[in-house]
């Protein structure tokens, strides 16, 4: 991780941590958030920098962000999806393969360097690249897509894609912090490399944000399995 962290790490924050989040609200110029979950992650990444913590963020580079909120001719709300371009992100010049719905696609990481906005470094992954077909590209188009299967695919990209990108970059965090349940497929990917369930648990901490039973995301187990959410592990 030290390759990506240009600041001095404070001794009491030496444990290496990868922080997985669907949203990051870092700066007006980087539109990767819908609301409070992102504001929280953004402030966390700023404080990680301020305190010298051995932390790296992992998120998704949303091609269209959440949406642009404007007005129509009668001044009512208008939702616009406008492609974003970010010339300040660093191309990490590698791709990893992720299997979604029995199809192999490419996931590519970019880096928000620590110095740009004074945050922990953040790896932002995208499927919206030349090597993928159109359907695969759309997975990282819109934060919280309206389609259930696209949302599941987004979670697989963040969790499994994120884990594989870290591995390809030779980053081995001691702790994986999953900020809300979206990145859960990460757990199944990591389990393949753990000897025991206990060894897996030692690597995972989880923050829940939803106080309403109905607000907690649920899907058909069979659908998740078919999509590859469990990283190819058997259902039980």
């Amino acid at each position: 991780m030290s390759n990506f962290i240009p600041y001095n790490i404070t001794q009491k924050y030496a444990t290496s941590v990868a922080y997985f989040s669907m949203e990051f609200a870092i700066h007006q110029a980087l539109k990767l958030y819908g609301g409070g979950l992102g504001f929280l992650a953004g402030s966390h990444m700023r404080s990680a920098y301020d305190l010298g913590q051995n932390m790296i963020g992992v998120g998704i580079l949303w091609s269209y962000g959440y949406y642009d909120q404007t007005r129509d001719k009668d001044r009512n709300l208008k939702v616009e999806f406008r492609r974003k371009k970010y010339y300040f992100l660093k191309d990490l010049e590698l791709c990893v393969d992720v299997v979604i719905n029995s199809k192999t696609l490419k996931v590519k990481p970019f880096l928000l360097q620590s110095e740009i906005f004074n945050t922990a470094p953040i790896i932002l992954i995208s499927t919206d690249i030349e090597d993928n077909d159109y359907l695969s590209k759309t997975i990282t188009h819109k934060l919280y897509d309206a389609d259930e299967e696209t949302i599941i695919a987004q979670e697989i990209v963040l969790g499994i894609g994120g884990a594989k990108v870290l591995e390809a970059l030779h980053i081995k965090p001691k702790i994986h912090h999953i900020n809300e349940g979206h990145a859960l497929p990460l757990v199944f990917e990591l389990y393949k490399k753990c000897k025991t369930f206990d060894a897996l648990q030692q690597k995972i901490v989880f923050t829940t944000h939803t106080p309403e039973a109905a607000g907690n995301e649920e899907h058909s187990t069979a659908l998740l399995h078919k999509m590859g959410f469990f990283a190819g592990l058997s259902i039980d």
């Binding site: 757990v187 897996l200 901490v205 649920e218 058909s220």
Partner: peptide, 18 residues
């Protein structure tokens, strides 16, 4: 039916509310 929060609560060594 698979609940993501329950899955994460079981996989983690420790969890937190906000």
């Amino acid at each position: 039916i698979f609940n993501l929060t329950i899955g994460a609560l079981k996989a983690a060594k420790i969890s937190n509310g906000v």
